[in-house]
Write a protein that binds this DNA or RNA. Structure first.
Length: 487
DNA sequence: GTACCTCTTAGGTCC
DNA sequence: GGACCTCCAGAGGTAC
């Protein structure tokens, strides 16, 4: 006989509800009525998931595989063991740090073993440098002369920075440094300082600011010390490195599914909650200033045109993606500039670096690119986007110009779709042992591409030619331009 | 039309 | 190496 399962809070509340309802039914002498009602509709018992009798807490600590064994002088037998032991010895599980409605000190929710002082001072100094520098974005319409063949995944650029499914990955928009930030389904936020390899430590700083999946991360180049995060737990938090805290900006009973900021506007947040609702949050006034119902189902992504920041794109599980003009959005959900019906749930809609194109990814196995005047031209590319339940849905992102899109491949590769000739190539590496689902392109380092998996790993592809790496560039025959009908 | 059920998918852990 | 767990998607089917 299986040992008695420990009930979660949710299950306990649910059982209490059922018990209360039973008592109420009995008191109203409605039990016989209720029984006849259930007899009418003979449902099989609600689906439950088996749980192991003695569930051991999962280590939430990052394991960084930053140096090859050969490079570290470790014999093959020791492979990975060191990291795993480190992970197992890590302390607080997410459940041990329940989120409160209020600000959280960074150290309160820090899950790492060594301190995070070096990260705090690094971000402060990078923020100060950005204040002075004011760099321009990489990319544009004309192309960068970027050579896809030079992309490689070095062994030291592979890290398991958290456990579980990564839903969001971003680069800190700093010019000099490569810092990756990712959020997972457990509400964790991990920051990986990739360049700290020679400075001791593994460079990964894990935090647990949310009680639910992290649905959005936003960082502005002009305010590097402020990291905005949203979560299914209904909260928006601001990781303020100057104050060393995760401030609570917004709290709701509804899930928050996406978060975005207009370029160069650090005082406003756009986020989606519930079914199709988009909210504008004024950070200085600390209140939601506008709200619109734009879709009939959840909004999965919000993105702004980098050249005309009044144009906003949304993708939704109501099978559509839309482009809106913020100056006329008040007129309601029918007042979109452009709407594309994808027949299936749409996972993403992102403007290209020049703003002249929009790429959408849908579970209809298509990546669609809108271009031309008023985005009236549509090109569609067949792409297998059926990721199933356990993987984060694929989202095609733009590289550093309008010529290439990057998206995960179910064969553990990175598909690169050329928007100029419609051809797709797949980047593969023996260092990439899981399917990359979510991507980020470094805004200032052409060729630096972060790919996150549903197992907590991040692969950092860089534009280096290395004979040691066995990255392979091959043409995928099944992914030429196709029509929407074929999709 | 709505509510509910089943199936599918991959990665990590444990034995 | 295989069994088991994960569980906040989405599609398709069925009952009401």
């Amino acid at each position: 006989m299986a040992p008695k399962k420990t009930l979660t809070d949710y299950e306990r509340r649910r059982l209490e509800n059922i018990k209360r309802n039973d008592q109420m039914m009995a008191s109203l002498k409605l039990r016989s009525l209720a029984l006849s009602a259930t007899a009418k509709r003979q449902r099989i018992e609600a689906k439950t998931y088996k749980t192991s009798p003695e569930k051991k807490p999962k280590p939430e600590t990052p394991v960084v595989v930053r140096r090859s064994l050969r490079a570290r002088g470790i014999p093959p037998d020791s492979s990975g063991k060191e990291g795993v032991e480190n992970a197992a010895s890590q302390s607080p599980s997410p459940e041990s740090s329940p989120q409160k409605l209020g600000p959280l000190k960074m150290r309160e929710v820090y899950l790492g073993k060594s301190g995070d002082e070096s990260l705090i001072s690094l971000i402060r100094s990078e923020a100060a440098m950005m204040e002075w520098g004011k760099p321009g974005q990489a990319g544009g319409d004309g192309g960068l002369g970027f050579d896809l063949g030079s992309l490689a995944l070095e062994a030291e650029n592979v890290a398991r920075i958290m456990s579980g499914k990564i839903l969001n990955v971003r680069f800190f928009p700093c010019v000099e440094r490569t810092i990756v930030v990712a959020g997972n389904k457990s509400g964790n936020l991990s920051i990986w300082d990739v360049d700290c390899g020679d400075e001791g430590g593994n460079g990964v700083y894990p935090y647990h600011p949310h009680a639910g999946p992290v649905s959005g991360i936003s960082i502005q180049p002009s305010a590097l010390s402020k990291v905005f995060t949203s979560s299914y737990d209904g909260q928006i938090r601001l990781m303020d490195v100057e104050k060393e805290s995760f401030d609570l900006l917004y709290s709701s009973d509804e899930c928050i599914f996406s978060l975005a900021q207009q370029p160069n506007d650090v005082n406003s947040l756009y986020f989606s909650e519930a079914r199709g609702e988009l909210d504008l949050f004024d950070i200085r006034a600390s209140k939601s200033s506008s709200s619109w119902i734009l879709h009939t189902e959840r909004i999965n992504t919000i993105d702004f045109n980098p050249e005309n920041t009044n144009l906003m794109a949304t993708s939704s599980s109501d099978d559509t993606a839309c482009i809106w003009d913020l100056r006329s959005i008040n007129a309601g959900s029918s007042n979109y500039l452009k709407k594309i019906d994808l027949k299936r749930s749409c996972h993403s809609a992102y403007f290209s670096p020049s703003g002249n194109r929009l790429a959408t990814t849908s579970v209809n196995n298509c990546v669609a690119v809108l271009s031309g005047d008023d985005y009236k031209d549509t090109s569609t590319f067949y792409h297998n986007n059926r990721t199933g339940r356990w993987l984060s849905g694929f989202r095609a992102i733009w590289g550093w110009d309008d010529s290439h899109l990057f998206i995960g491949n179910m064969g553990r590769g990175v598909d690169v779709i050329s928007t100029t000739d419609g051809k797709t190539v797949t980047l593969e590496s023996s260092n990439m042992t899981a399917i990359p689902c979510r991507f980020a392109a470094h805004p200032f380092k052409v060729g630096a591409l972060a790919a996150a998996t549903s197992g907590g790993q991040v692969y950092l592809w860089t534009s280096k030619v290395s004979n040691a790496d066995c990255s392979l560039l091959k043409r995928s025959p099944s992914m030429d331009v196709t029509t929407l009908e074929k999709c």
